[in-house]
Write a protein that binds this DNA or RNA. Structure first.
Lengths: 210, 210, 210, 210
DNA sequence: CATGAATGAGTGTTCATTCAT
DNA sequence: GATGAATGAACACTCATTCAT
């Protein structure tokens, strides 16, 4: 017990700092398959290779762990979205398609869908988090889309009225399809790319120049 | 034992037959505000003005109550959707707008959003119900939309390619906006009608003739 | 409901009087297979072809029903036992064998084993009934055996010391075997008659003259 | 993770290892007086000086606790019985008397009667346990008796036909008397030793040489 | 700091008993 | 009297959280 301090103190330090992330990663992995409510903190502990009590050293409660997980992933999500929208070089058509694909990948493969699900069904328990998610994920996502539309107008690819188009309508299909796909096997999942293309075509058909 | 086929045995039972519906109504009302998991069966009982045990006379478990509630509401939802699509007399533009409004009203005001939420976050506990919901609500909703698009083509209001357009893309925004609106105050709720109009404009702009 | 008073008032009266017995019979039949605690009063009602509430017209509680069942069967048991012992004409050997067989039949086929089982495991709930059962079933059974032994001495078939032999030792094997047989498939049931014979041989071998 | 194989990890656990036994002991003590069904798990917890939840750390259900209790006591019972039969040095008369006394002590004072009672009245809920009890307690008890009879024949104390005598008939009185004694105050308990003597006399009178 | 045994409030479910019809 | 819908006390079991080691 006390003999472990001999070898390398850095080693332990390093692991210690990684702990919260490992716990969050394990938690998300379990939440993805079992859902938030049905996943016991003990399972998270086992999944992260730590003891139950250890989780409480880093997160004051199950909800706090969830909030921390959202925070940890939100940064990535937002950055991804912004990169797609702002640093993209290609046509608006490609940009939109890439954006939809990013949303899908982040939601489905990255597991972010679990955050949205929990907030949708148990949002009442996380009032601040709901606000924060709305402001940081949704609003920023919408803003990214808006900038993308404006860029399209600026590039002469979209009609000027596209600047007024509500970004929520652009994002909704990609998100709804991702959510459906995680529960309803026959709806949304397999041909996601095809649907995204059709959605882009729809947008360009209506908002595109000529 | 076999003598029960007398005159009118329904008389006395008719009043009692309302009980299950009252319980379901009370349950949905509570689920809407507190969510499914956070609503105790005792609260449902109080809400319905009965004792806890009474619920078990009609529903064998909390999950069975949920399934019964879905069944009870599904019929209405599907009928609504079909009416919108099939019996509608006006233009496709009006038909789409009406359809979106029906979806929104059913989801938000009718409270059907709670079913979707629960299935999204706890679908694992209701495998058959997930299938049933997908087949009865989602698939039929998509079919109604498809028929609506075909009707538009037949009426010469939509390009022939509209017949191939994926109905999921038409429904997704209306559903996603409804879901968002129940949790994120600033997203989706207040100006729903405006968004639906813009969505219809988008569809017609791309799929409409001329 | 009110139209049934037309036909024969005697018919209903007669059935009314039979009700308690029918209920008791149905109860015992269920207790035999499911046990006392695991049998719901509703099952008894269904088995007896009456409504749950009707049981309470005749028996004030589940325990009262049990007590009444014991009383109803006790009379028969005791009479059977007394007949075996007192009215028997044959040898003591035959008398003992007949007696053991009566005990077994009453216990196993008649279902009396359920009374003993309940009193053994839940006797605390029925203090007066325990006393009554002890006095009416056990003690009288012992007395019947004692008289049987005395008769054997008088007939010159048993040594005089048999008059002092404790009847409990005579009865115990027959009862224990019956109890075992109702739960442990391999112990006691199939070859009961053979065991009774061996038990009689044992008794006569030790207590028999010559 | 794999470093747990250090010096003495048993030290800390040894104290905790007593918990299951303490819980079993408390449970049996309560079952003896109140019966199995009527004893709430919370009472067991209080009796063992732990919280309700602690019981579930060691036993997955009330029934599992019962099964564990049977297992824990079965070993002792069987060992006792075997010792009596095999390692005994004295005459068959003494051996039988000692054996009966062991049975009685184990059943009445050791509290094993509660296992038999529960299995008799609620055996349906424990099908495997019934089998196990039959095979481990009853059958082995019978075998011990059989060996005891064979030993008596070998020692020239019993007639050769004693080898064929059914051990169930030897055990039944001791067990039945123990069971009776736990419920019916006037039957069996006080003069148990006297009855055992008479039973031995009966057996030797019939099966004994000369 | 890490551990995991211990805690106990909370809830779904059962079922004997009551009582309006 | 009979019915069976309604009641509500009782209890097994779960799991987030705490804390002695």
């Amino acid at each position: 017990m006390d003999d472990t301090t001999k070898k390398g103190p850095k080693k332990r330090e390093r692991r210690k700092e990684a702990r919260p992330d490992e716990i969050i990663a394990a938690a998300i992995e379990l939440w993805k398959v079992r859902g938030f409510a049905a996943t016991r903190l003990e399972d998270v502990a086992i999944g992260a290779g730590v003891a139950k009590g250890t989780i409480y050293r880093y997160f004051s409660s199950k909800e706090a762990l969830f909030e921390a997980a959202v925070e940890a992933r939100i940064v990535r999500s937002v950055d991804q979205a912004n990169q797609s929208a702002d640093l993209f070089e290609g046509t608006t058509e490609e940009a939109l398609l890439t954006f939809f694909e990013k949303v899908r990948r982040e939601m489905v493969e990255g597991g972010s869908f679990i955050f949205l699900k929990v907030l949708l069904s148990e949002g009442h328990r996380f009032p601040e988090l709901v606000e924060r998610y709305e402001a940081t994920v949704l609003r920023r996502g919408f803003d990214a889309v808006r900038r993308l539309l404006l860029r399209g107008v600026a590039r002469g690819e979209l009609k000027s009225e596209a600047a007024e188009f509500d970004p929520r309508l652009v994002m909704a299909p990609a998100m709804m399809l991702s959510l459906w796909g995680t529960v309803f096997p026959g709806v949304g999942a397999p041909d996601a790319r095809q649907l995204h293309k059709q959605n882009v075509a729809l947008l360009l058909g209506s908002l595109g120049v000529e």
